[in-house]
Simulated scan of single mutants.
Amino acid sequence: MRKMTTVKAALLFGLAIAGLTLICGEKQVEARPNFKKIWAETYPNSKMLISKKCGICHPGKTKKEKSAYGEAVGKGLDKRKETDKDKIVKAIKAAAKMPSPVEGKTFGDFIEKDEMPPAK
């Protein structure tokens, strides 16, 4: 009888730990969640955001890698982790007017055609 109580207690303890892990576990958080939302509002007809998500500005495996377009948007921001919507919209629109690595084309030309801007 005593062995059965020990097994039940161990099982209950294990379930409690698993439950706490699920509840208190880390959630994945984007460093700049506003950027995707604001980009989608700025270009509402673009299907590129649905397929590429953060890859429009970050083509690599990490968010530290930036495409030429991502760097152009970054140049229009006052600080690294900008949260002001108006400043972000202004930076996105300014980047669209900047020349891309493809001679004679701006980043906006690619966005209008719903194509990914070239990486670099």
Rank of each mutant, 00 (worst) to 15 (best):
M1T: 14
M4H: 09
M4G: 05
M4P: 02
T6G: 05
V7N: 05
K8R: 07
A9V: 12
A10W: 00
A10P: 06
A10R: 02
L11N: 04
L11Y: 01
F13W: 06
L15A: 07
L15N: 04
L15C: 09
A16L: 14
A18R: 01
T21A: 10
L22Q: 15
I23L: 14
I23C: 07
C24W: 03
C24G: 03
C24I: 00
G25D: 00
G25W: 02
E26R: 09
K27G: 10
K27M: 11
Q28L: 12
V29F: 13
V29R: 15
E30G: 03
A31D: 15
A31T: 15
R32P: 00
R32S: 08
P33H: 00
P33G: 05
N34Q: 15
F35I: 11
K36E: 15
I38T: 06
I38S: 09
W39M: 11
W39P: 00
A40Y: 04
E41A: 10
T42Y: 02
T42V: 12
Y43A: 01
P44R: 02
N45V: 01
K47F: 00
K47T: 05
K47L: 00
M48K: 01
L49A: 05
I50S: 13
I50C: 05
K52A: 15
G55E: 13
G55K: 11
G55Q: 09
G55P: 06
I56Q: 05
C57L: 08
C57E: 12
H58L: 04
P59C: 02
K61Q: 12
K63C: 06
K63T: 11
E65R: 03
E65P: 03
E65Q: 13
K66N: 14
S67V: 06
A68H: 04
A68K: 02
Y69W: 07
Y69C: 05
G70A: 10
A72S: 07
A72L: 05
V73L: 02
V73F: 02
V73E: 02
G74I: 09
K75S: 02
K75H: 04
K75E: 04
G76R: 03
G76P: 13
D78F: 04
K79D: 12
K81R: 14
K81Y: 15
K81V: 14
K81Q: 14
K81E: 15
E82N: 03
D84S: 14
D84I: 10
K85P: 13
D86K: 10
D86Q: 11
K87H: 09
I88L: 12
I88G: 07
I88P: 06
V89K: 07
V89P: 11
V89I: 14
K90H: 07
I92N: 04
I92M: 11
I92P: 06
I92A: 12
A94Q: 06
A95L: 05
A96S: 11
A96N: 08
K97T: 09
M98A: 15
P99Q: 10
P99K: 08
S100G: 00
S100Q: 01
S100R: 00
P101M: 10
P101F: 14
V102S: 15
K105T: 06
T106I: 02
F107Q: 00
F107C: 00
G108Q: 09
D109T: 07
E112M: 08
E112F: 01
E112W: 01
K113S: 00
D114P: 00
E115S: 03
M116Q: 10
P117S: 03
P118I: 06
P118C: 09
A119I: 15
K120D: 11
